[in-house]
Design a protein around this nucleic acid. Sequence first.
DNA 1: ACACGTCGTCGAAGCGTTTCGACGAAGCGG
DNA 2: CCGCTTCGTCGAAACGCTTCGACGACGTGT
Lengths: 346, 346
Amino acid sequence: MATMHDVARLAQVSVSTVSYVLTGTRPISQATRNRVLAAMAELDYQPNAMARGLASRRSRILGLLMPMDERGLGATETAFVTGAAAAASAAGYHLVLSPVGGGNLDDLRRLASQRMLDGVVLMEVQLADERVTVLQEAGVPLVLIGRTGDTSTLSYVDIDFDQTVREAVAHLVGLGHRRIVYVNHSAATLASGYGPALRTRDAFTAAMTGHGLEPVMIAAEDSAAGGRAALAAAFARTPELTAVLAMNETAIFGILGELTGRGLSVPDDVSVVSMVTSPQVAELATPALTAMTSPGSALGRIAIEALVRHLDGSAVDRHQQLLPCALEVRGSTAAPRSRQPMGADQ
Amino acid sequence: MATMHDVARLAQVSVSTVSYVLTGTRPISQATRNRVLAAMAELDYQPNAMARGLASRRSRILGLLMPMDERGLGATETAFVTGAAAAASAAGYHLVLSPVGGGNLDDLRRLASQRMLDGVVLMEVQLADERVTVLQEAGVPLVLIGRTGDTSTLSYVDIDFDQTVREAVAHLVGLGHRRIVYVNHSAATLASGYGPALRTRDAFTAAMTGHGLEPVMIAAEDSAAGGRAALAAAFARTPELTAVLAMNETAIFGILGELTGRGLSVPDDVSVVSMVTSPQVAELATPALTAMTSPGSALGRIAIEALVRHLDGSAVDRHQQLLPCALEVRGSTAAPRSRQPMGADQ
DNA sequence: ACACGTCGTCGAAGCGTTTCGACGAAGCGG
DNA sequence: CCGCTTCGTCGAAACGCTTCGACGACGTGT
């Protein structure tokens, strides 16, 4: 393994000159630069990341902390990751994913304090997230995907749930639906302070009320069985329901199954809209689901870019941004059978 | 940020003594050790990972290289990851996931040559995988999850596809099925040399032939539409089919939809078995799928443990191991309607 | 022609560890 | 009681890089 000394000797320059060629920190004449570059190529030189990190006090590694819980990453989360990885690579950083589960907060503390990460992006942030505290105490630059309860001091990128829910509801109302049920994540998830669940709940209430309609929300366990139970509960509360809006990607398959089981057809009897869903998942269902497609890779990219700007010092203040999901109409929504669609002109 | 010097000064010992306490490389008296430990605690000392890595020439970081393609990680892959992370943590290593997609082989080469990773575990290995070559050239210790074509020289852990397919087929045959169609991954995937697809194909042929039955395999695109098309093709080739064995987790939802669309019920008209599937996914379908459950976290754990043993020098030879999937009977398989189940006693 | 920047390069001092050789103090058999 | 290990500790030399101060060699404005 060739070192800088070897390169310097071969190119007949000092070690520091080689370093300057590599980092561009100081001007180097074209002639010298070429000699150095040639020497590097000949020796197949690769800088030692550890030595670099030690001397410069920055590792050029960014962490993407993702909770790896029971259910795997959906296509949505995967899009975050690929977007982030591409952005990091473009900025000359490595991106490592760290599967910090719930328990190992100490693991996280260690990782952070060991100065191995220049900065981190945190996924799936809770309203009150201990990880944020740990990282802030360790002085690690931080960008969130999602938001904590108090958004004032931190950088974040998140989905604009308010706008997304409003659009979904408007789509259904525009088709003529009046009895719309919202299937959210489980009660436990809501109680734990999971931002998306809470924000969509509030947004749904606001949107429905705005249309003069009654907001009915059901909390469903994240499983097919949970979806089934939720639908049963929905019919119990609102027998004439004609549309379901679902945040719970897992439950939605149970909902569809139960609908079919009751002899109801989608979309003729009941329309279904899935929230924050990737096209891949939406296409899995029969018929394919009308869904609010999450901005996916853009979220990851923007988060990394904000973090890098912060590290490079080109931006000192925090970055806060919301991205809406886009409505993609597929086969699971239609006008309700019992009445004609109501356009704005009626 | 406290350094070793600070700890040494506070504990009134030399720096090297502190290091010995930390690493256990040389004996240290209990009294001194306690003084040092106390000093560390008081200063909230955390060793600098870079400095450690530079001096010791080992980073204590393990890489898990996973391809992050279009479709996200299923629960199966997630289980690999969590298993691996737990094992690495237990062995005192950090585990970082690197999303190396198809294109960036150079990225990989760089990562490998920069001596930032002590060793790597490679997921989703192709029969002819360039990444293996790159890493071997860079001299990075390597364990595969999956197998290359030539398995002789490398360490790997993989699913025992032969055994898994045999068991799945035996289950269906035991219920009385004779016309069984195997829905594999796409023709393109097969052509690209994706091991699981090829091995299950061969295993299916062998298993069916062993029962004196005709093996019919359909290649399906990884999408719901692909599943539908595959089922249509299956009925065209084998109109009296009573059972479907599916490797393609994505296509299976299309298959189920198409079955329902044709007015066929699962499992009364057609039985369905899903291969290498996680319980979570199996439960999404209605009825829940009988499936061959992948060994999940065990794969990840075993791979990491093998790698660590290699790095610690406690094992020099390669580790090769196959784990079967476990049959979990749920609601999607039953005796075919047209004839009685055939037990061994008939 | 003179002081004065700027450019391109060098040498050396770190960065925070590990690790090697050395060395006094015990402990031990003879 | 002497020479020998073994134990516990120390000081110093790496590890491979970045970065700072210095220093000629040149333009440049005056």
